[in-house]
Design a protein around this nucleic acid. Sequence first.
RNA 1: GCGCCCGUAGCUCAGCUGGAUAGAGCGUUGGCCUCCGAAGCCAAAGGCCGCAGGUUCGACUCCUGCCGGGCGCACCA
Length: 553
Amino acid sequence: MQLTDRLTSGVRAALAKAGLPEPEECAWEVPRQAEHGDYATNVPMVLARAAKRAPRQIADLVVKNFPPMAEVERLEVAGPGFINVFLAPVWCAGALREILGAASEYGRGESHAGQRIRLEFVSANPTGPLVIVNARAAAIGDALARLLRSQGARVTTEFYVNDAGSQFEALARSFEARVRQEFGEPAALPENGYPGEYLVDLARTYRAEGGGLLHGAPERERLEHFGRYAVARMVEAQRRILREYGVEFDVWSSEQRDVRNKGLPQKVLEELAARGLSYEQDGALWFRSAEREEAGDDKDRVLRRSSGEPTYFGVDVAYHHHVKFAAADRVINLLGPDHHGYVARMKAAMQALGHPPEAFEVMIVQLVTLLRDGQPVRMSKRRGEFVLMEELLEEVGRDAVRFTFLTRRHDSPLEFDLAVATRQSSDNPVYYVQYAHARIRSIFRQAAEQGIAVPGLTDVDTSPLVEPADLALIKRLLQFPELVRGATRAREPHRIAYWLQELASEFHAWYKNHRVIQEDLRLMHARLALCATVATVIRNGLDLLGVSAPESM
RNA sequence: GCGCCCGUAGCUCAGCUGGAUAGAGCGUUGGCCUCCGAAGCCAAAGGCCGCAGGUUCGACUCCUGCCGGGCGCACCA
């Protein structure tokens, strides 16, 4: 059981014993100042109205009736009615052994146990290479998957390929034009085509592989041929970059193969119609989106055009309902800000189809404004101008890129200065954290070289760890499981990144003032145990972010 | 015009579902390596938390209205 859960049970027991009502939730925070204890709760103030008592009076009763527990040294009432908890030093030091015993399991929890979650992110169109914002979404999505899994959820990560519809056609036409040019024929790019150089390169590859022009074949067939080829290669390239980035998807689904070819759009449209959730007008089929006020859409949406073709929305509704929700009870989509107008209608559709509102989550990953030497670089796939994810990885490095994106909230637009990122890559915060880990590993190498026998750390005597700095470090380590749980619940991986910097900072300062390898064997072993624990927690934390914890750097 | 996101130190950003005296990195200034890794440590300077009201024991946090920036408002995806 986690520490804060133990404290909560103590508070509840005390309230019950005092004949006071219990709160629905008991929130614990780590006070900014050490004088305010290791944990504090505002329960007495929350309860004041229901209990018809003054907060401080309630707090007094809780403190008086709090059952004895090994974790807690003392409690005190403070301010307008806080209860401050001071942990018992002996218990804290002893807890190190449990963390070491848990090893890579430390930080895991059960807060999402039993949930089946379908998590989609990146899902860039197969019409071009991945760009910077995709790297941001990939870092956040992957970290989120790791967090959710650490809390017991069964997560399926997914990259959805939009290999159908008008964009597919534009790609097919663009690529065909490039191929014709490659063969020396005059051909102009279509109006809505993709002018990027990458299609020129792809056309060259295509020809080198013996691909032909398909003269005389019907247009439908040619577009299918060129489109499929281009999509396959684009997806392949995207997958390769993501793999280099450390992001692997469980599922690569295809709009054409997994939705359209299976007749799902038709199916879901019939279901909607049967339930009276849609209507015909001007030859098109409309979804009654506006009347579902709780979802927030302001107008009805077309599901099937008057031409008979389903819209992207119609296809997507089918996909979510018949594929995603068939395999999961919770769906999380990370989308770009250009899709946020789309969110309300999807929520409305999901609710109309009977899925609880909280089962469908959308996270908007805001744009990355790229700066080069302080000047914004305008990016446009349509104009073929962009900075590739590949270039970013080469210039800055995988760990630094991921960590940088994970130190920002997903819904906050961020500026990424390439020049600064490159120049500062050696003092990027990620190295600060990794350095703490490498430093600790180095201590153990050092010890081994000196022939020092390190006993089993999980049963080492930790009682020599009595200094305030020792205890402060240990108490921070004890926060980790709660941190992970909170970051998962809030879908905020950046909390991990920030916390790791604080932990590293505390360790570096401790290290400066505390000699580990030394004459006093009991003290040395206790400090080695502390170091090993810090390294374990840093490793576990970085692992949740998909960032490596190097042995040396 | 309507909707969503964002305005916090010179810059880039945190501030944990309302808590106690607002933080970090970078940058600036000044110290610290005969001692386990100086990618480190210590210290200083730097703030009307966009503005104005409201809610309450308490507001960077919630509500309203402005100002400023970004993005959306298709039988496109």
